[in-house]
């Protein structure tokens, strides 16, 4: 299958403009015969929304932008980020997977960074779960940015049978790296490599670029194969568009020699987790 990663720079708070940007890239991806295109976190709205959250919130069951994207998803699956008003006045940082004209799955960001420079917990409600879902190609699971830095979240997707893990992100660069990049980029690549390797899944990480209120989004999106091999890597800091062929059969091949999935014991992990949680009370 062919995967496109659209490493774009969204316009803060401008749904219409961002929607049109999505259309352009979807068109381009379709031309390249792509099966799936992935956009970054909050790609329809921009990231540093603060009090603008409510202005750009969408209820996907009744929204013309989503309806148009659903129509386009008859030919190509689409992953994008948006502000979801699931219930009145309750806003989530959400990722949608559209396919065959329908919403296959919505993931609501569970881990909302609220420390240092991050304020998501002030403006968003917390998602409640991680879940795998079927797609036309493979069983998939999604995470949004900081979700991915909690390896328990990846484990849940692994235990749920994910073959394709999709992470969408709006990660600002931070730290002057010695190698001429933001130091923070290694954090994502390290996790990407490790999770793809030990989950024996394909792993897509789509980060955004552009600047908002002094944040410089670092880009550097990537795609790992199921044994932690880097298949594609987008530019740092600059807009980029990648199309990469993957062979889903690699999963079978690699799982023959690395039996992490076959030998997983979720019930033991769950039991141990319950004990660990119980012990908090001691």
């Amino acid at each position: 299958m062919k995967i496109a990663i659209a490493q774009i720079s969204s316009v803060l708070g401008d749904l219409k403009n961002n929607f049109e940007l999505h259309l352009e890239y979807i068109k381009q991806a379709k031309k390249g015969g792509t099966d799936l295109i992935v956009f970054p976190e909050l790609s329809l709205t921009g990231y540093t929304l603060k009090d603008l959250v409510e202005n750009v919130a969408i209820n996907p069951s009744n929204n013309h932008y989503i309806n148009e994207l659903k129509l386009l998803s008859r030919d190509i699956s689409i992953v994008f980020g948006f502000v979801e008003e699931k219930e009145r006045g309750i806003f989530y940082n959400s990722a949608a997977f559209l396919s065959k004209g329908e919403i296959s799955h919505i993931h609501r960001k569970v881990f909302l960074p609220t420390y240092g420079m991050f304020e998501e917990g002030k403006f968003f409600a917390q998602g409640k779960y991680f879940k795998t879902f079927p797609t036309p190609f493979a069983k998939a699971g999604m995470m949004i940015c900081y979700d991915f830095l909690n390896y328990g979240a990846s484990y849940v997707l692994f235990a749920g049978g994910a073959e394709l893990i999709i992470v969408i992100s709006a990660a600002p660069g931070r730290g002057n790296g010695k190698d001429g990049r933001f130091a923070s980029q290694r954090m994502w690549e390290l996790m990407g490599e490790a999770i793809s390797y030990f989950s024996t899944t394909f792993l897509i990480y789509c980060n955004r670029v552009g600047t908002e209120d002094g944040k410089i989004f670092a880009g550097g999106s990537f795609l790992f194969n199921p044994e932690g091999k880097l298949l594609a890597k987008a530019k740092d800091i600059h807009t980029d568009f990648l199309i990469q062929d993957i062979d889903l059969h690699d999963i079978n091949r690699i799982r023959k020699k690395r039996c992490y999935k076959r030998d997983d014991k979720p019930e033991i992990i769950l039991h141990a987790l319950n004990r660990a949680i119980k012990s908090y009370e001691d």
């Binding site: 420390y115 240092g116 420079m117 600002p172 931070r174 933001f182 002094g214 410089i216």
Partner: peptide, 16 residues
């Protein structure tokens, strides 16, 4: 004035 974040700790971002 907005300061572009470069380091691990930046005035106006996470020096609070």
């Amino acid at each position: 004035p907005v300061i572009p974040k470069l380091s691990e700790r930046t005035i106006g971002h996470d020096f609070l």
